[in-house]
Design a protein around this nucleic acid. Structure first.
Lengths: 244, 244
DNA sequence: CGTCTAAATTGACATTTATCAATTAATTTC
DNA sequence: GAAATTAATTGATAAATGTCAATTTAGACG
């Protein structure tokens, strides 16, 4: 399923520091690693593994043991909750320069969802046992990780509310706005996701997603082709997201 | 809306330690406070306020400033996400002896949901600024709080999956099993929740909930009266939860 | 270029769920 | 304890969403 290509280990932290996602400066998503001393950073860097995944490959698999934390250096990945019956739900798209704890780190020992590469992805694997050691030594670091965890928590709450309180048009609008404003940050945006994946982000079947998209197109709210969507009337989409 | 009766402040920690929910021994849900030194515990205890709420009262209100963390000493409370359009979703029932961070503590400054008393509730309010001070001093404490946060995160993930991947019978089965096994821990169980509230826990209207319950009754899976439900065939309910 | 394959789209239909109105049962209030 | 209020239930219906099958389109590959 996932063919892992391990790169060489990183030897010199001071050299690689600004070249990888552990660096405070590069890690746009948070300041988690900013509070570590050079020695502490070294502890993490020392055995980090930087790995390349090709588009489509599984990076982390649901229900496998949780031994490493992942930091995405470049590329896009999707966080998928896999259902026994095959109903997948895409919870989040991960951009470059964000770290990802894969659910129940610290609480239990296995991963609660799958992470798969959407584009080619370069990422680092951090040994969680080294991380835990640092947590006990550096409380500022622990607090940053707590902030990160709570922040993920709130995102998930928002997803839950969106999915359970809204009808399809509202959910589709949410997905489109999320992709434009949070992930691709351009308009129109070209996407590497299939309609099935967009539907999995919106909690519906691909047929329903397509029909909803077509209604938006017919109403002049968006323009879409196979791999690109342009939002023409964002205000109206926001209204649909709020009211539906 | 909520008429708050403040009790006297706690003066002597060593005395009240085993009488309130901060105590390691009483806080069944977690060991969060177990790692604090007596002095640190004192810092928290010193200004704690123990407050009584009557059934139905709002304990914490969504969108208000987050200044205190709440620890439930006795009684039951519900965690509700309130929707502008009035579609409420009950995310969780809180039992006695559990602490509750109300969403985005540390991340932002307001509460992301409402907590309301189902029965009479005695609870303590802990000043979050004192909590944060302790976090920086005691990394073990920070790690415990991180565990608690991640654990809440996983519960929410499970709720999200249940609500978005299952049809009504599966969601009703989930609610019944949750109440029996996690909240009331008896069978039959008497509940203080209205059918509307049970429906709000299951992400559906009260009419749909009642119809689903009736089908279970007709199939001999449960027996229910106004304020009590007995689960007769738990295995079959578990199957329905898994498959539907 | 034509063939093959996977994705996207469309249509008809079945199922699930919500809505609305009416009725009954329980609880509170005087 | 009768009247008034609230919660629970039922039925009829409409709306939302999923399912299945068929068709079209776009890319990949020889």
């Amino acid at each position: 399923m996932s063919e892992i290509q391990e790169s060489t280990l990183c030897g010199h932290c001071t050299e690689c520091k600004y070249d990888c996602c552990f660096s405070n400066k590069n890690c746009g998503d948070s300041h988690i690693f900013g509070l570590l001393t050079p020695e502490e950073l070294h502890t993490l860097m020392d055995n980090k593994r930087q790995i390349h995944f090709r588009s489509g490959e599984t990076i982390l698999k649901q229900n496998t043991p949780l031994t490493h934390l992942v930091c995405i250096k470049s590329g896009l990945a999707k966080v998928v909750s896999e259902d026994p019956k095959g109903k997948n739900l895409i919870l989040q798209i991960i951009k470059s320069n964000s770290i990802f704890t894969a659910g129940g780190s610290i609480v239990d020992d296995f991963r609660h969802f799958t992470v798969a590469a959407i584009t080619d992805v370069d990422c680092c694997f951090i040994d969680t046992s080294r991380l835990y050691t640092l947590l006990t030594k550096n409380s500022g670091f622990a607090i940053e990780l707590l902030k990160h965890s709570n922040s993920q928590h709130l995102k998930m709450l928002s997803t839950l509310i969106n999915l359970s309180n809204k009808y399809m048009p509202g959910r589709v609008a949410d997905t489109l706005l999320y992709l434009k404003n949070n992930i691709f940050e351009s308009n129109p945006f070209d996407f590497v996701l299939s309609k099935q994946e967009l539907a999995d982000m919106s909690g519906m079947t691909k047929e329903s997603f397509i029909r909803s998209l077509k209604e938006f197109e017919d109403s002049g709210l968006i323009h879409h082709s196979r791999n690109s969507i342009e939002i023409l009337k964002e205000n109206e989409l926001v209204d649909i997201s709020k009211n539906g």
